[in-house]
């Protein structure tokens, strides 16, 4: 058992990060996917995680969304522990109720969109606000239509996902996640399953979010040009650790580590 007394019950002070990974370890059996990860994301910051497959980058997002339990360390969201909760003056693993409370500040978009196939685009967006937040149908509809407008999908609001292209589905999925008013948005390879010609319509939506909304965002992507344009910081993951991180111009322009250089030149060759 890990000694939990080194972890604060909550984060306080002037510079509380929106997300803090503190000493977070994740392993599947003997395979260590993430090794004592420390990562802070400031409020309103856009952080992009890049790295070779198997480097643990998607796992970071999945742990933050509580889709994967962690094996060590603590994740804090908006100053509150997410994976743990305070009890009797120390942190114990979070129960379902605590997870639900803290998870409300996090939204996620997936590589495979994962829209609900039995609902229209509008119904997909209204589902969370009505069923989880308890909004009236009228309020949920107004909020959803506004967001479908934002992602340019208002014309298709009554279509089922099976009638939409991948790019359109992903834009609806972004609206659906935003309808829950999260403080942190996670984008997990949201363009990887798309045909090349529709990638732009999804990245345009994310650009708009970055420009116009003060959301904290954490993104995993293979679109290096896109990442360079919109990120405040790039984290290069290798072997379950952050090998190098920094502002996009520095990391892409003059990387310090060999592995970063090797990865970036391999990616460039692929294009």
């Amino acid at each position: 058992m890990e000694d939990m007394s080194n972890y604060p019950l909550e984060l306080t002070g002037p510079d509380v990060p929106m997300v803090r990974f503190m000493n977070v370890t994740k392993s599947y059996g003997a395979l260590v996917v993430l090794d004592k990860l420390d990562l802070d994301v400031a409020p309103g910051e856009m952080v992009t995680i890049i790295g070779p497959s198997g480097s643990g980058k998607t796992t970071v997002l999945r742990m933050l969304m509580t889709l994967e339990p962690i094996n060590g360390g603590v994740i804090y969201v908006d100053g509150q522990p997410l994976t743990h909760m305070p009890r009797g003056g120390r942190l114990v693993p979070a129960d379902a109720r605590h997870l639900r409370k803290v998870r409300a500040s996090i939204g996620m978009c997936f590589q495979q969109f994962n829209l609900f196939p039995h609902m229209t685009a509008l119904q997909n967006c209204m589902e969370g606000p009505v069923q989880v937040l308890g909004l009236s149908r009228a309020e949920a509809r107004a909020r959803s239509e506004e967001l479908l407008e934002l992602v340019g999908m208002i014309d298709k609001k009554d279509q089922h996902p099976s009638r939409l292209s991948g790019g359109q589905q992903q834009r609806v999925a972004i609206a659906r996640a935003l309808a829950m008013r999260p403080k942190v948005m996670l984008f997990d390879e949201v363009t990887s399953a798309l045909d090349p010609e529709v990638i732009g319509e999804v990245t345009a939506v994310i650009r708009k979010l970055v420009a116009e909304h003060n959301l904290t965002m954490l993104m995993v992507t293979h679109q290096m040009g896109f990442a360079r344009d919109i990120s405040d910081r790039i984290c290069f993951f290798f072997g379950g650790r952050i090998e190098e991180q920094g502002p996009p111009d520095v990391l892409f322009g003059s990387p310090r580590r060999d592995r970063t250089r090797q990865f970036l030149s391999a990616v460039k060759e692929a294009i």
Partner: peptide, 8 residues
């Protein structure tokens, strides 16, 4: 997972 991400 999508349902969990919506905190259902």
């Amino acid at each position: 997972e999508a349902a969990l991400a919506l905190n259902m």
